[in-house]
Nucleic acid binder design. Structure first.
Lengths: 264, 264
DNA sequence: TGCGGCAGTTTACGACGTAAACCGGGTGGG
DNA sequence: CCCACCCGGTTTACGTCGTAAACTGCCGCA
């Protein structure tokens, strides 16, 4: 509705028909960890995180809640598993997706693929994504959204292989992480509440002016702009800007120290 | 401990002795919404969000859980109130803080003050901050971390008053938001788990290699770098870079359209 | 024929959020 | 003076949650 029809965002189409749906229709009746985890993902996508309950998840799988505990230590660990499952799809290239991260050409291509891979995940599972950002990490000193150690390793190795010093690679990791995290989280949370303000005219007219915008003129005036969705383009532009910065850092590395944090 | 002693991060010292502590020692026994909200903030700071319970919060206030419901509609709304309380401190200038946002000189100064204000909040309440990013917003189309309408209004008004077009101001709002959100969230979640990996040598030696790093050489090699805290400097650098971009956008605005999203 | 373990169920417990009924003590009107 | 009333807080109660522990039907193997 709010999204325009000329929306050709490539990170959106990629998964909608893709990964889980087809494989999930054939139902060998047995439980296992994988099935539970993906059922949880689907449940969260459909009903939100708050609605996810051991009992309800069991029900969706046609089983009592306690059955899940044979495969999952508890709810908290289940959520960790959900995050891992979702992130891990970055590396699974079942469907011949051209965004597969491993076969890249150069670190910039790698970072672009990685960014779009994460964005694809975020858009495919908007309600799961915030979990990625808030769960405690496997290793305490590396952080979201590049949660899995495998991913951080892949990141650092690619950059250092391309000539980045360890320091520069780590700095790049942090700059890149926070960019990706910020942008995707902002984008994803906007999705969940994409109703503009043309919907609250409902309700009893007593408390009508619950959100009275007359006190916020600029906000009122720019509302159509604010509710517009230019996410894809903004994402691309910010990403390119970041890559430019990193390229600069890499090339200036052989020169002397210029005081920048990037190449500490 | 892990933080070095030469840490003079200005956003850290600012609040530690500041706002809430002194006023909270004198205890007029009555309850009210404000007191409850700040008790919740303190509780979350101390024990984490998961531990916050109506019963426990009541106990901390020397009162039964149900007493809270006279001032707060429910737990969910309490959390909204917590977020608002914390964000609203950006505007309260009780303690003569020089970071007060309203009296700025120029939009760049404003953005710098705002950024440091938010960072101060994030560092003062690391466990509360993720809430800011995940709570549904007052108006659905504006989003964290600039949650309050007052804040968005202030942001937009300042920029447009400084010569930004509505479109540029909105684009700036989004770029700025996602930058701030990403950086602070990353920084804040690193705080909560700042134990490096020199602590898991504990535990029964059976499952010792729970996090076996031998498979992740780059990660192992750069661990001391990764666990280092250069957040303040990185923050400053990224912020300046963003401001430079925005300045460019502002000045090129009078020229023709160059295809950038920024000044669409 | 029996028997051990696998996969899932039943039962049970304590803690949660919160609706509803219940107080005690101050306050104002008769 | 007294009684009705309300205000601020408590008690009780219900349904749901996560999960420990005991239980059950069943299947493969001796």
């Amino acid at each position: 509705m709010t999204r325009s029809d000329d929306d050709l965002d490539p990170d959106l189409v990629a998964v909608n028909e893709g990964t889980a749906a087809a494989a999930e229709l054939t139902r060998p009746p047995g439980l296992d960890r994988e099935r539970i985890l993906w059922a949880a993902v689907e449940f969260i996508d459909r009903h939100g995180l708050a609605a996810l309950t051991m009992r309800r998840l069991g029900a969706q799988l046609g089983v009592e809640a306690m059955a899940l505990y044979r495969y999952v230590p508890g709810r908290e660990d289940l959520l960790d598993g959900v995050v891992d499952s979702v992130v891990e799809t970055l590396f699974d290239n079942d469907d011949g997706d051209d965004l597969y991260i491993e076969d890249h050409s150069g670190w910039q291509d790698y970072l672009v693929r990685l960014a779009h891979g994460m964005r694809r995940i975020a858009l495919a599972h908007p309600s799961v994504f915030p979990l990625i950002t808030s769960r405690p990490p496997a290793a305490p000193w590396v952080r979201p959204p590049l949660r899995s150690l495998r991913m951080v390793e892949s990141f650092l190795a690619t950059l250092t292989d391309s000539g980045f010093s360890d320091q520069a690679a780590v700095a790049a990791y942090r700059a890149y992480s926070s960019f990706l995290l910020g942008h995707l989280l902002l984008e994803v949370t906007q999705i969940g509440a994409q109703v503009s303000l043309l919907d609250l005219p409902e309700g009893d007219p007593d408390v009508q002016e619950a959100t009275d915008l007359s006190k916020y003129p600029s906000l009122l005036r720019t509302e159509p702009l604010l509710s517009q969705d230019k996410s894809a383009a903004e994402f691309e532009e910010s990403l390119e800007n970041l890559l430019d910065r990193l390229t600069g850092v890499l090339h200036e590395a052989k020169n002397s120290d210029d005081g920048s944090v990037m190449d500490l």
